[in-house]
Amino acid sequence: MNPAPAPSVPLPAPVAAEPPSSLWRDAWHRLRQNRLAVAGGAVLAVLGLLCVFGPFFLSYSYQEQNLDLGATPPSAAHWLGTDTLGRDLLVRLLYGGRISLGVGLCATIVALTIGVVYGAIAGYVGGKTDAVMMRIVDIMYALPFTIFVILLMVFLGRNIVLLFVAIGAVEWLTMARIVRGQIMTLKKMEFIEAARSLGLGNRRIIFRHLLPNALGPIIVYTTLTIPAVMLLEAFLSFLGLGVQPPMSSWGTLIKDGAEKMEEFPWLLQFPGVVFSLTLFSLNFLGDGLRDALDVRASKD
């Protein structure tokens, strides 16, 4: 079992010296060069705009029913068809996008922030602090989620902020463990030792030198968190938290469509396609971001 060869190339000099503005400018430049990432970003932007402004241009509302019509396939009147209560699927999909994109982004940002900061501190400080922090993570993993959500609702009432809290509270744990693992490895590297010997503060070392080097897994796990969060929202709305009917979300639309996939396939297909499109775009954008922000690649 050979140990990995120690890096023989000396510490990249500009690590502390380079002004941050140029780092961001470089990154932005590289991101724009990445066609897939640009396409992903564009699709997301278009989807977001459609969800926010689209409903104003449509003549149906998300709750307007036509019981005699019932579920119909796409037609000139209803471009994406109607659901079993005769509601226009397109409008419901756009309204659902507001909820799902909102929840997906906000809850993920909550989870991301908590997870990254928590994991970074635990990994960097190490020792007893790390042990206590990680045991707290173990405890949080084990607590029964369903019970937690019901309690949250009973004692604090139902509102959208709670939704983020509930989702953020479960989704940050794995992120914290991943970041901690990365930081623990990175902090033994020469360039961090060097930064420390230069007398840089802990906060600066963590946020300027360690985290940028752990960006890859962070971004990848973030792009994995977003779909999980969007689908979790459907379960929460089942428990009574989250969106209430007749409002829809992508999660509830997909869940609803999945139950009727043989009879009314369009009820699954359209929400499924939009959901997938969003995830693919996020993924390309994420990959692009990772590359763009890669401190080492930039030195090539």
Partner: peptide, 30 residues
Amino acid sequence: SSDNVRILAEAMQQMWRTHLGIEIRLVNQE
């Protein structure tokens, strides 16, 4: 929380809105 119960509630809510002009809020619980 049950699909069949929900769909009925949605339809009733709409009928009360259109026939009586009143807004009933739907609240589901486990």
